[in-house]
Simulated assay, not measured.
Amino acid sequence: MLQLDNPVRVRPEARQQILETLQANKIPDDYGLRIGVRGGGCGSSWLLGFDLPSSADEVYNVEDVRVIIDRKHLLYVLGAEIGYETGGFTIEKAGENQL
């Protein structure tokens, strides 16, 4: 069951990669992993990167990863699952690309 305490899920392989990246790049503790959506001409795409929270954000601790979500994006990212495969991060959302 999805709880607002954990609006997204971070898979173990993604968690490990995120924590290693933060440490290897000496990114300060007040930064976190921002997840959101970016609008486009024909739809939207996922936004994922390290950032500082602002007053418009909600900050969550998911699997020891500080996750930052803009309140305007919360509805769109709710239930997303962050993974990692060779070559980069993946984001999947239940029901996406299903008819």
Rank of each mutant, 00 (worst) to 15 (best):
P53A: 06
A14N: 08
K72A: 14
G41S: 11
S44F: 11
I35W: 03
G88M: 07
P7N: 08
S54N: 11
L19C: 01
C42W: 12
M1A: 13
S44C: 08
E92I: 09
V10H: 03
P12V: 09
G40S: 11
G39Y: 08
N25Q: 14
L2D: 09
E85G: 12
R9N: 04
D51L: 00
S54R: 14
R9H: 03
Q16C: 01
A24W: 00
R9C: 01
S45V: 12
V62H: 02
S55Q: 14
G41I: 14
S55H: 12
D29V: 04
Q3R: 03
I68V: 15
G79W: 01
T21Q: 11
I18R: 01
D30C: 05
F89D: 05
L48W: 07
Q17D: 00
L74E: 02
L48C: 08
P7S: 06
G49N: 12
E85L: 13
S54G: 15
M1Q: 04
I35L: 09
E96F: 11
S44N: 08
G39C: 08
A56S: 13
A14L: 08
L78I: 12
G39V: 02
Y60F: 15
S45N: 10
I91S: 05
N61S: 14
F89R: 05
E81L: 07
D57G: 06
S55Y: 03
R34K: 15
N6K: 12
Q17N: 10
Q23K: 15
G36T: 09
I82D: 00
Q16F: 05
G39Q: 12
V65H: 01
E13T: 14
Q16N: 09
V77F: 04
D51G: 02
G32R: 04
T90E: 09
R15T: 09
R34L: 13
E13A: 11
D30R: 05
N97G: 00
D29M: 03
P53R: 03
V10G: 01
F50D: 04
S44P: 00
N61W: 01
Y60A: 03
T86R: 09
K26E: 13
F50W: 12
L4N: 09
V8S: 02
F50N: 05
R11T: 11
D29L: 06
A14P: 05
L78T: 13
G43E: 10
I69S: 04
E63C: 04
R11G: 04
S55N: 14
D30K: 04
I68R: 00
R66C: 09
D5L: 06
N61H: 04
A56G: 00
L33I: 10
P28Y: 06
W46R: 07
L99P: 14
Q3D: 05
I27V: 15
I82P: 01
S55W: 00
A24M: 09
L47T: 09
L78Y: 14
R9W: 01
A14S: 06
G40K: 10
G95N: 07
